[in-house]
């Protein structure tokens, strides 16, 4: 019984963490789906999102929802600017050239960010005074912050589903990711569609950044590296380019990580994440939901 309760507790923690990974993974997977780029800087957009949220709350005295929205809007603009300036000129270059550029953009956000906000970690303000919702006589609990994370994630995912499947932009995004040339011939504006993808992905990452600030109460310029990589693993796990795959992958990664930490192997948790990545890449690179494609000779 005790074991089961510990497991349940880690499951709750894992789902909260997994929500964050899923939100970031969505941006990875959408961008990869549309321009076949591992947008290395995506994890840093999440960091910027956290900082924007931080300043919105502490300097502008905003409450949670306005701060969240401000952060999402500013980061989508940042995402569009990055795509237009750094990635667009390389659209016909090799994928490695684009990847190197993305690494460059990532470093620029991290260390350029340090120059602006200093390398010191900052304490994220307590937006919601922590309360616990207990089950099983307090042996298993859920904080209201975890509840907020889960709720916001759920709302954003429903919204994303609506955009992708019910709007014109969404249809264009699906068309471009399926066949860029054919989409162009059908009169779809490729550049705007790609910008929209970056905007949406960045907004989701920004939301994840604000949520993480609330959850872990500490933010720093390098906070995006590891969660960014893990979210990428989540996207690969679910099948890169596949939106529901990123969500499932994100939750799986969060749960696995919570269980590994919960059972006392927390120093190994990063290795486990990368181990999963490598296993997936070697055994089924197309991920859980993907189909295998082979090179035409």
């Amino acid at each position: 019984m005790e074991d089961l309760l510990i497991f349940l507790q880690q499951l709750i923690n894992g789902i909260s963490l997994g929500s964050i990974y899923a939100l970031i993974a969505l941006g990875y997977t959408m961008v990869y789906g549309i321009i076949k780029l591992i947008n290395f800087a995506h994890g840093d957009i999440y960091m910027v999102g956290a900082y924007v949220g931080f300043f919105a709350i502490t300097k502008l005295n905003m409450s949670f929802i306005p701060a969240l929205l401000t952060s999402m809007v500013l980061c989508s603009i940042l995402g569009i600017i990055i795509e237009r300036m750094a990635y667009k000129p390389l659209r016909n270059a090799t994928r490695i050239a684009a990847l190197i550029t993305a690494i460059g953009v990532s470093l620029l956000l991290e260390y350029g960010g340090m120059l602006i906000v200093t390398p010191q970690p900052r304490a994220f303000p307590e937006v919601f005074p922590q309360t616990k919702i207990s089950f099983f006589e307090g042996k298993v609990y859920m904080t209201n912050q975890q509840l907020v994370i889960f709720a916001v994630t759920l709302i954003l995912m429903v919204l994303l589903q609506f955009i992708v499947y019910k709007t014109k932009t969404g249809k264009a995004m699906r068309a471009v990711s399926f066949d860029k040339d054919a989409a162009l011939l059908m009169g779809i504006n490729i550049n705007n569609t790609i910008s929209a993808t970056f905007a949406i992905g960045s907004a989701l990452a920004a939301a994840a950044g604000v949520l993480v600030g609330i959850y872990y109460t500490s933010i720093s310029p390098l906070m995006g590296i590891i969660p960014g990589l893990k979210a990428f693993v989540a996207a690969v796990l679910g099948g890169i380019g596949i939106i529901p795959g990123a969500v499932v992958g994100g939750f799986l990664m969060g749960i696995i990580e919570a269980l590994v930490s919960g059972y006392g192997a927390s120093t190994w948790r990063d290795a486990v994440a990368f181990g999963i990545l490598i296993l997936i890449l070697i055994i089924k690179p197309s991920g859980i939901f993907g189909a295998n494609i082979r090179e035409k000779v």
Partner: peptide
């Protein structure tokens, strides 16, 4: 150190472009 890394970052981007 930060300036060094910013230079590295810009180097990567500018070379690729």
């Amino acid at each position: 150190a930060e300036i060094r890394m910013v230079i590295y970052a810009l180097l990567l981007i500018v070379i690729m472009l």
